[in-house]
Design a protein around this nucleic acid. Structure first.
Length: 424
RNA sequence: GUGGGCGUAGCUCAGCUGGUUAGAGUGCCAGGUUGUGGCCCUGGAGGUCGUGGGUUCGAUCCCCAUCGCUCACCCCA
């Protein structure tokens, strides 16, 4: 039996260099959610399978074939979460956050799991962040969520966002639209791609965003959902558009935008970035006024979005929008010999405790080799203690940039560091 | 699930129509001053050529299978 020495398909290791970039992004995420008044929730990474079956929809691709599902020892069916909304809604119901007139603004950030074929920007374990606003059907809530997402990407320097907006109606008006759509499309079924033929009965709305060119041509003259919304949905959509206009967000109405989960009502949106390749959606979301009730809570309107971290990272990398993160040591301490090591080890620990980034040799390397390491690490200063310095109670400080050296009293080291360095 | 591309050193890749001990760059280690980095020079370590089979006097190279990675379809963040 040979150990497998590679991470499972569709997973990856984040190594120190990249992990610090992730930390930067995570900080930006926490920051904007705080500013917009969202509180963080951390739900379990696995849930009862039933939650996703009911929440996301039995007939969605995710539930049908992409979930990591297994039985625990008590023979309960457990599933690694494939998305975040269902868990947040579950927690919202479980902790009774839906008091009369109460609203909850929640966000999450963490790994999700879907067992699909990995490719660029798509993994089996991937990180999503997202937000959910529960308890208000006011279009201002929709606009707030969209503005938050848009401004987040803008802040990071992505300024050519393609913001797609649509309304897919509600249980009042969608069935009628669905019917009209069927009437138009059924006679043309023979010309459709096999996929769309299958979808025709089950979810005809999905035909609208088929990428097959002949399918697209078949639907050029179909009635648009935005023209058949009921009064409630229509005015909701109209108000949302006014609100977005008032905040200077330049979206575009895309009547073909439909989404993969069953729970959406009214508003749906997607934010795309051009240079992402096939997986070009940075985030997507929408309103789900029936979901809380479907999951066993009191009827509560809600809206949210989910965003992919890996994809965002790809865009930021490609456009060089990630800041240089300076983790270089302020000081490298180079001991020569046993006695110097005994001085330097506690010194190193003490200086770190006062806020300096300090590195030292732990292998007993030669001075030459230690200088090399200090250089490679990018240390600003290197402090050498050999036999001479040890006897004299001194330390030889070398400026790695200029090469200048000066011998100072060990007792005056703190003062010296304060003078020539600045903490990061 | 379907289709394309690719598996040679830690990393990025050469390896001409199959021919001796498989190479380069980079990284790593050591040396070129007795206690001093970057540039330069020298040396060294490191490879079951993804795996298994086949063809052949002989396979990293050709054929088959298999595994892995990757891109795309589908779907999605």
């Amino acid at each position: 039996m040979i150990m497998k020495t590679h991470a499972p398909k569709g997973t990856y290791d984040l190594l120190p260099e990249n992990a610090s970039r992730w930390r930067y992004l995570e900080n930006q995420i926490h920051k904007i959610f705080r500013e917009y008044g969202f509180g963080e929730v951390r739900t379990p990474i696995f849930e009862h399978t039933e939650l996703f079956q009911r929440g996301i929809g039995e007939t969605t691709d995710i539930v049908e074939k992409e979930m990591f599902t297994f039985s625990d020892r008590g023979d309960r069916s457990i599933t690694l979460r494939p998305e975040g909304t269902a868990s947040v809604v579950r927690a919202f119901i479980e902790h009774n956050l839906a008091g009369p007139g109460a609203m909850a603004k929640l966000y999450y950030l963490g790994p999700m799991f879907r067992c699909e074929a990995p490719q660029a920007g798509r993994f089996r374990q991937f990180v999503q962040f997202g937000a959910e606003t529960l308890g208000s059907n006011d279009p201002r809530v929709d606009a707030e969520i969209i503005a938050l997402a848009v401004n987040f990407y803008r802040r990071l320097g992505i300024d050519d966002l393609d913001i797609n907006l649509n309304s897919i109606g509600c249980p009042q008006c969608r069935p009628a639209y669905r019917q009209r759509l069927l009437e138009h499309l059924k006679p043309r079924a023979a010309q459709m791609c096999p996929n769309c033929q299958r979808r025709l009965e089950r979810n005809p709305l999905r035909l609208l965003d088929c990428k097959n060119t002949t399918c697209q041509q078949l639907t050029v003259d179909i009635p648009l959902i935005t023209e058949t919304l009921c009064d409630d949905c229509g005015s909701h959509f109209e108000k949302l558009r006014q609100l977005l206009d008032s905040t200077g967000i330049n979206y575009r109405i895309n009547p073909r935008l439909v989404r993969g989960f069953d729970y959406y009502t009214k508003t749906v949106f997607e934010i795309l970035a051009g240079d992402l390749g096939a997986q070009n959606a940075l985030c997507g979301g929408g309103r789900y006024d029936g979901l809380v009730e479907m999951c066993g809570g009191k009827p509560t309107p809600g809206i949210g979005f989910a965003a992919g971290m890996e994809r965002l990272m790809m865009v930021l990398e490609a456009r060089q929008l990630l800041p240089e993160i300076d983790d270089r040591p302020h000081l490298y301490l180079a001991p020569l010999g046993e006695e110097a090591q005994q001085i330097i080890f506690p010194l190193c620990i003490r200086l770190r405790e006062s806020g300096w980034i300090v590195e030292t040799d732990l292998q007993g390397k030669s001075l030459k080799a230690q200088m090399k390491v200090a250089d490679k690490l990018g240390a600003r200063l290197t402090g050498v203690i050999g036999e001479d310095e040890y006897r004299a109670g001194k330390i030889l400080m070398r400026n790695m940039e200029t090469g200048e050296q000066e011998l100072i009293d060990l007792a005056a080291l703190d003062e010296y560091l304060e003078k020539v360095l600045r903490r990061r």
